[in-house]
Design a protein around this nucleic acid. Sequence first.
DNA 1: AGTTCACACTTGACAGCGTTAGGTGAAACC
DNA 2: GGTTTCACCTAACGCTGTCAAGTGTGAACT
Lengths: 209, 209
Amino acid sequence: MQTGSLARRERQKAETRQAILDAARELFVTDGIEATTMRAIALKIGYTPTAIYHHFRDKDALIAELCMADFSALGQAMYKIGRIEDPVERMRRMGLAYADFALDNPSQYRFMFMTQQGHQHPDGDKYALPDQDAYGFLLQTVTEGIQAGRYRPELADPEELAQIFWSGVHGIVSLYYTHCDDPYISWRPPRETVRSMIDVMLRGAVRSD
Amino acid sequence: MQTGSLARRERQKAETRQAILDAARELFVTDGIEATTMRAIALKIGYTPTAIYHHFRDKDALIAELCMADFSALGQAMYKIGRIEDPVERMRRMGLAYADFALDNPSQYRFMFMTQQGHQHPDGDKYALPDQDAYGFLLQTVTEGIQAGRYRPELADPEELAQIFWSGVHGIVSLYYTHCDDPYISWRPPRETVRSMIDVMLRGAVRSD
DNA sequence: AGTTCACACTTGACAGCGTTAGGTGAAACC
DNA sequence: GGTTTCACCTAACGCTGTCAAGTGTGAACT
């Protein structure tokens, strides 16, 4: 049972690793990433803090691993929209799905798109996978719309137009997250604002004739 | 010379306080707020870290004071646009001025609008001052446009429309700040993207007839 | 079967952080 | 001249992420 023993050993290590990830995820979501300490994660799974360092180089690597899974989930959400023929209508649906993801996963979204991203790419090309690359989907949808002549002629740059659409939805969600407690601003429900924002942006971007 | 001595004493204390603010500002801008330590600020002005606590309750209070000045500066930038008659054109100019402020003061903008704002209001009503309340300017400009019948009828809510315009510009700047180093995205110059974004939003929001 | 080895995990510590209780010394007052 | 005030310092606390060195258990080899 050599291979069996070895396999069990590796499986146990993988289980511990997963336990760390699960505990970290839960604490990150409830307490926030900054406020979550390595000691708290370790305590939650009954290990000492240093044990974590046998599975992850440091706290950033642990965060990056969870973050990677989140980017993959966002890519899946985009992928599930499927192939809607009209590239403009597909654009609208992607925007709404993006907002849903952002508003359903506050902690994850915060870390993915509202913090400086130095450590976003632990192993380079994971994001080049076609079913996970949300920005790639966006870019392709925009490009198709441009090629189909659906957008105004001055909006010929796919990257710029993609960044405009992305920023529009991101702006509403992120501003809401950072300032929703601000008493001087009476926030409208973000999902409705996103819907209006997408309407406004698409109306202003598509060719009118 | 009783009052003179007293006055000098108070002036010296005020000078020390200002020195702390200046040192903190500079370190915040160069190293970032999180990375700037109370010890570093104190060292820069030749005091011990505890001296700072005689002038500010804690680090957050020090940050809040600087932040307050920044909000005031943003309000001034909006105020300087002046009274352009056409509320839509004024809206466009406000958006551009806002983007200029955001891109000229990265560190300040980051803290003002890209971090959780629990400590934004140290003494409540400072932001209600008419020449500092940038959101108030925005809201008023949007309201004037709605009342003049310049915007489409489905965009009748001033708060929602204001939040859309704000989010559009903020989205571009903030996304650029958090992801400009991302190699998978070829960022367009943010000022140009902001200009296009404003064009798109205004075209999509104004009544066409 | 007995020895060695690998290695997941622990112990105990380090440097640095924000912050604080208590002390010091010079200037301001009576 | 004695007392008080108060801006500032000394020394420390508890917290953080992290690491060098040790431990013990179970697989592996002779």
